[in-house]
Amino acid sequence: TYVQALFDFDPQEDGELGFRRGDFIHVMDNSDPNWWKGACHGQTGMFPRNYVTPVN
């Protein structure tokens, strides 16, 4: 499953995934309602669910 970033996200903690608005992120785990795990630009980490939108 892929999502697209609605906003820039700069990691604040180790293990978070940084990205820029418009980036596509491969979702690896969406079991938590607020923080998902994904991959983008060769990196993996957690990111806030409300920063992304589903891609059809």
Results as ranks from 00 to 15, higher is better:
residue 14 D to M: 10
residue 18 G to A: 12
residue 44 T to L: 08
residue 1 T to Q: 03
residue 39 A to F: 11
residue 53 T to P: 01
residue 50 N to S: 12
residue 33 P to S: 11
residue 43 Q to D: 07
residue 49 R to I: 05
residue 2 Y to P: 04
residue 6 L to M: 14
residue 28 M to G: 03
residue 36 W to R: 01
residue 17 L to N: 02
residue 34 N to R: 14
residue 19 F to H: 01
residue 38 G to M: 01
residue 24 F to K: 14
residue 25 I to G: 01
residue 3 V to D: 01
residue 31 S to N: 09
residue 38 G to V: 01
residue 37 K to D: 02
residue 27 V to C: 05
residue 18 G to D: 11
residue 33 P to F: 15
residue 15 G to K: 12
residue 2 Y to A: 04
residue 16 E to S: 09
residue 47 F to A: 02
residue 26 H to Q: 15
residue 30 N to L: 07
residue 40 C to W: 03
residue 22 G to A: 04
residue 56 N to L: 08
residue 10 D to Q: 15
residue 13 E to S: 12
residue 37 K to W: 07
residue 20 R to N: 11
residue 23 D to C: 04
residue 9 F to V: 06
residue 48 P to Y: 03
residue 2 Y to C: 08
residue 7 F to T: 15
residue 13 E to D: 09
residue 49 R to F: 05
residue 17 L to W: 04
residue 42 G to N: 11
residue 31 S to R: 08
residue 32 D to R: 07
residue 50 N to M: 09
residue 3 V to Q: 03
residue 47 F to M: 01
residue 39 A to G: 12
residue 8 D to L: 03
residue 53 T to Q: 15
residue 17 L to S: 01
residue 53 T to S: 13
residue 16 E to M: 15
residue 13 E to W: 07
residue 17 L to E: 01
residue 3 V to F: 15
residue 17 L to A: 02
residue 52 V to N: 02
residue 45 G to A: 01
residue 12 Q to K: 10
residue 45 G to E: 00
residue 29 D to G: 05
residue 54 P to Q: 15
residue 39 A to E: 15
residue 32 D to H: 07
residue 24 F to S: 08
residue 46 M to G: 05
residue 38 G to R: 02
residue 5 A to S: 04
residue 41 H to M: 09
residue 23 D to L: 00
residue 17 L to H: 00
residue 37 K to E: 14
residue 29 D to K: 04
residue 53 T to I: 13
residue 49 R to D: 00
residue 38 G to A: 02
residue 8 D to H: 05
residue 50 N to I: 08
residue 13 E to K: 15
residue 30 N to W: 10
residue 5 A to W: 00
residue 27 V to M: 04
residue 26 H to G: 10
residue 38 G to H: 02
residue 36 W to K: 02
residue 51 Y to T: 05
residue 28 M to K: 04
residue 26 H to T: 14
residue 17 L to D: 00
residue 12 Q to D: 10
residue 34 N to P: 01
residue 19 F to R: 02
residue 38 G to K: 03
residue 4 Q to L: 09
residue 26 H to K: 12
residue 21 R to V: 10
residue 11 P to C: 05
residue 30 N to H: 09
residue 41 H to P: 02
residue 50 N to L: 08
residue 7 F to D: 08
residue 52 V to F: 01
residue 47 F to I: 06
residue 8 D to K: 03
residue 14 D to R: 10
residue 20 R to I: 07
residue 32 D to P: 05
residue 29 D to S: 06
residue 48 P to F: 02
residue 39 A to Q: 12
residue 36 W to G: 03
residue 11 P to K: 11
residue 50 N to T: 14
residue 15 G to E: 09
residue 6 L to G: 05
residue 36 W to L: 11
residue 40 C to R: 09
residue 24 F to M: 13
residue 7 F to K: 15
residue 9 F to R: 13
residue 25 I to T: 02
residue 8 D to E: 04
residue 40 C to A: 14
residue 28 M to N: 07
residue 13 E to G: 13
residue 55 V to W: 09
residue 14 D to T: 06
residue 1 T to R: 07
residue 14 D to S: 13
residue 25 I to C: 01
residue 14 D to A: 12
residue 24 F to T: 15
residue 54 P to R: 11
residue 25 I to M: 01
residue 6 L to C: 11
residue 44 T to F: 08
residue 56 N to G: 14
residue 45 G to F: 03
residue 7 F to W: 09
residue 5 A to E: 00
residue 36 W to D: 01
residue 18 G to I: 08
residue 51 Y to I: 11
residue 30 N to S: 14
residue 45 G to P: 00
residue 56 N to S: 11
residue 42 G to A: 06
residue 56 N to I: 08
residue 52 V to E: 02
residue 2 Y to W: 08
residue 12 Q to S: 13
residue 40 C to I: 09
residue 2 Y to V: 07
residue 3 V to R: 03
residue 4 Q to F: 05
residue 1 T to V: 05
residue 42 G to E: 08
residue 55 V to E: 10
residue 51 Y to M: 14
residue 16 E to F: 13
residue 20 R to E: 12
residue 15 G to L: 06
residue 44 T to Q: 09
residue 42 G to F: 03
residue 22 G to P: 02
residue 3 V to I: 03
residue 27 V to R: 00
residue 23 D to A: 05
residue 49 R to T: 09
residue 6 L to T: 05
residue 38 G to C: 02
residue 42 G to T: 04
residue 36 W to P: 05
residue 31 S to P: 03
residue 11 P to S: 10
residue 26 H to M: 13
residue 7 F to R: 15
residue 6 L to W: 03
residue 56 N to H: 06
residue 11 P to A: 12
residue 46 M to T: 13
residue 32 D to C: 07
residue 12 Q to V: 08
residue 54 P to E: 08
residue 3 V to N: 04
residue 24 F to D: 04
residue 46 M to L: 13
residue 18 G to K: 13
residue 29 D to F: 02
residue 35 W to E: 06
residue 18 G to V: 07
residue 14 D to F: 08
residue 33 P to D: 15
residue 54 P to A: 13
residue 10 D to H: 10
residue 13 E to P: 04
residue 28 M to W: 10
residue 21 R to T: 08
residue 9 F to T: 05
residue 18 G to H: 13
residue 25 I to W: 01
residue 43 Q to C: 14
